[in-house]
Amino acid sequence: MGTMALAIHGGCGVMSPGSQPEAEWAEARAALAEALGAGWRVLSAGGRALDAVEAAVVVLEDSPHFNAGHGAALNADGEHELDASIMDGAGRLAGAVIGVRRARNPVRAARAVLDGGEAVILAGPAADAYAGARGAALVDPSYFTTERRRDNLLSMKARGQAGTGAAASEAEKHGTVGAVALDRDGHLAAATSTGGYTNKPAGRVGDSPIPGAGTYAEDGVCAVSGTGQGEAFIRHALAHDVAARMRYRGDALDAATAGVIADLTPRGTGAGLIALDAAGRVAMPFNTGGMFRGWATPDGDGFVATHGQVFALGRLGA
């Protein structure tokens, strides 16, 4: 049996421990644990890494604690425009959707694009229709809206008028979810999903649905899912840069991932990522106050964290 590995994230940022009650941090950790379990069940049953990352991200999209799917950020017009991508390291196949408003789980819409093989990225109502025609659940856009996100939008608009946007908490601004996996057959996969950032211009596209920017997977090298300031990730082709450092320069995973984050830090760019290499080693660097994250060892032991403290989950599926 080959080595299996799985890692997930729910976004990085300022994330002051006092920015929300401890009960909400605990609920977010529970959602991370549920996502880890969903992905690990796929892998431990001999399933594909591609199916594992999709399963894990679906759980995070369904949780109101993260900015993807239900609970996603609202744009400046008070609407949701959801982005997602998924990539299979076997053959470097990818599918992505931009600006969907009806696909309940944008990662499933992205998977439909990948499986369809007719395009890599579809956008807007056409992407929703394409996914729906291939079995993805469609919902009224109001499904994604929560009271917290409505409050966030009002707060960010007020901050914009007052010129205090830079002082906004992570909860007010943005977030992303993602997963990376290695299956028993040695295949790698990655997936990323987001609502963008609160009060973003209508039509804005970040890094999450761009293969090579926010998501990348290549068998024999690595799988990456990023979170942070998407415009910088696009300009730096950040996810692919990790693979390039490993493939061309011979960097180990830790050095490659730390290097791409270090390149962004002097520019004041908040950034984090999760990554796996072909041996199942995990890297999770971030330069912000915290990052929602979780991972499983090859033996199936699970762990989750938001800040420095790590919470052990025990054997997943036990």
Rank of each mutant, 00 (worst) to 15 (best):
L6V: 07
I8R: 01
P17A: 04
Q20N: 02
E27G: 09
R29M: 07
A38P: 06
V42Y: 04
R48V: 03
A52R: 10
A55K: 14
A56E: 10
L74E: 00
L74C: 03
G78R: 05
L93Q: 15
A96V: 07
V100A: 01
R102P: 13
R104W: 12
A109C: 03
D115N: 11
A126P: 00
A131F: 02
G132V: 03
A133S: 05
R150F: 06
L154F: 02
R159K: 14
G160M: 05
Q161H: 12
A162S: 07
A162L: 08
A166H: 13
A171C: 01
A171S: 11
A171P: 01
G175A: 09
A179R: 13
L182D: 03
D183F: 06
G195T: 04
N199E: 07
P201M: 12
A202R: 13
V205M: 11
V205W: 09
G206P: 13
D207E: 06
P211A: 07
A213I: 08
E218A: 11
D219E: 07
G220Y: 13
A223L: 02
S225I: 00
H236W: 06
H236K: 09
L238F: 08
H240Q: 09
V242C: 01
A243Y: 05
A244G: 10
A244N: 12
M246W: 14
Y248C: 00
D251N: 04
A258S: 14
D263C: 03
G270C: 00
G270L: 05
A271K: 02
L276N: 10
G280N: 12
G280D: 11
A283Q: 12
M284V: 11
P285S: 09
M291N: 10
W295I: 08
T297F: 10
P298Y: 04
V304R: 12
G308I: 06
G308E: 13
F311S: 15
A312N: 09
L316A: 04
